[in-house]
Design a protein around this nucleic acid. Sequence first.
DNA 1: TGGACAGGAGTACACCGTACACATTACTCG
DNA 2: CGAGTAATGTGTACGGTGTACTCCTGTCCA
Lengths: 236, 236
Amino acid sequence: MTPQVEVERRVRLNRDRVLQAAVSLADEVGIEALSMRRLAQELDVVPMALYKHVENKEELLDGMVEVIVEEIDPPIRDTDWKSAVRQRVLSARRALQRHPWARQAIESRTNKTPAVLGFMDSFAGMLLAGGFSVDLTHHVMHAIGGRMWGFTQELFDDAAPVKGEAPVEVPAEVRAATVQQMQQRYPNIVAIATSRNHDDGSVVGHGCDDEFEFEFALDLLLDGFERLHERGWSSR
Amino acid sequence: MTPQVEVERRVRLNRDRVLQAAVSLADEVGIEALSMRRLAQELDVVPMALYKHVENKEELLDGMVEVIVEEIDPPIRDTDWKSAVRQRVLSARRALQRHPWARQAIESRTNKTPAVLGFMDSFAGMLLAGGFSVDLTHHVMHAIGGRMWGFTQELFDDAAPVKGEAPVEVPAEVRAATVQQMQQRYPNIVAIATSRNHDDGSVVGHGCDDEFEFEFALDLLLDGFERLHERGWSSR
DNA sequence: TGGACAGGAGTACACCGTACACATTACTCG
DNA sequence: CGAGTAATGTGTACGGTGTACTCCTGTCCA
C-alpha cells in the first residue's frame, strides 16, 4: 500500500474540461489575456498537453464559442414571428452578455461551427415559419447581422474600463477644460452625450442605457421587416 | 570627395511615412500579419526605430485608422438629411472598402482619435441639421452603429478566402455530399443561401451582392428614422 | 503479466512587442 | 565654418506567444 493520501489523484483532461476552463478563464481575465500557457497553468498541466484535446488555438476559440452558443434558450413556439424573434434575440443577448468576450469571438470566427449554424438556421426558420419568403428572409438575415446575437455595435464604449487598468483619477479642472475643448471641436457629439441622464452630472457617455439602445434598434428593424413582409416585398 | 553614388542616401523616417507604410503593408498582407518588425523591415530600418515616431503598436493602429478616415469625403451640403446621410455613409463605405482590415481596426480601437470623432460629429450634425431632436439623434447614432462607416455585419463571409491560403480544390462529389448533409441539418440556411443567383450553380453563399445587402439594411434604418422623426418621437 | 496506446512532460524554435543603452546623423548657433 | 545639442537610428536583451517533435508514463485489455 503506497501512501496516496498526500497526492490528490490527477483528474484526467478532456476536451470539455479544457473548453470549460477556457471559457471561465476568458470571463475572468479577458480574451486577450487568454493564452495556451495561461490556460494550461490553470489546469495544472503543461501547455502542450492541451494540444491532445484541441487542434490549436483557433479551434479552441471555436469550441469556446460553441459552448456559450449552446447556452442560448431554444426558440419559443406558438407565437407570431415577431415576438418569437424578439424573444430569441433577447435571450441570446442575455446568454452572451455573461461572457464579455463573446461578441469579439463570434464575429472573428469565420469557421461556422455546428452550434452557430444551428442557431442561424433556427433563426431563419422563425422567419420562414412566419410566412416570409426565402428571398426576404435572406436579406433580413443580412440586415439584422450581429444583432441576431444580441450584440450592439459598440460605438462609444468609453464606459467600459480597460481590463486590469486602474481608473485614472482626472482632476476636475482638467476634465472641465477637456470638455470645453471637446465642446468646441465636437459640439454635436457633446450635445448628444450630455443630453440623457444629465442628472448624474457625468460629462460624457455613461448616460446610455445599453439595453434601451439595443431594443430601440432591434424594434426599428423588426418593424421594417414587418412592413416589407406585409406589402409582399421582393428584391426582384 | 568620398564616393556616395553607390549608396542612396537614406530617406529620413517620419510619422507619416510610417503610417503610410503600415497602411499599405496591412493592405497587402492583412492586419494580423502586420508586426512592428515586419513594418520596420519594409522601411529598411531596425524595429526599434519605429518607436521614435509612434508610441507603441496600439498608437500605430490608431494612426492607421486616422489615415484612412481622412480619406472619406466631406458631407455634401444643401440636401435633405436623408440623402446627405446616405451619400456620406456610402462614401465612407467606398473609402474603407479599399482597406479590408479597416472594419476590424476601427471597431477594436476604443480610443477615439480626432478624425474618428470628427466623422462622428459631422454625422450627428447632419441629423440635427435635418431637424432631429438631440434625443432622437442620440438613439439613431447607436442604432446605425458601425453601419455609419459603411460596414456590414459580416455574418457569412465564407466567400472571403483566408489570406495567404491557397484555395483548396474540393472534389465535386465531396461537395455534393456536404451539401446534402448541410441540407439535412440546416435546411433553412441552405434554402436561403441557394435562393439567389442560382444561375452560377455555386453551392453556398457567393450569391450575395454585398452592396445590395448593405443598402437594403441602410435604407431600412433610414426609413425607420424618418418615420420616428416625422411623428416627433421621443424616448421620454 | 505484458504490451499497446493515449495522454501528459520536456525541450526547442521562431516569432512577437518593446525597454534600455549606445552610435550617428542633422540642425542650430556662435 | 566648427562645436554642441537634440533628434533619429542601432544593438542587444527580456519575457511573452503558439506549437512541432520526442520521449516518458499511466491505463486498460488480452
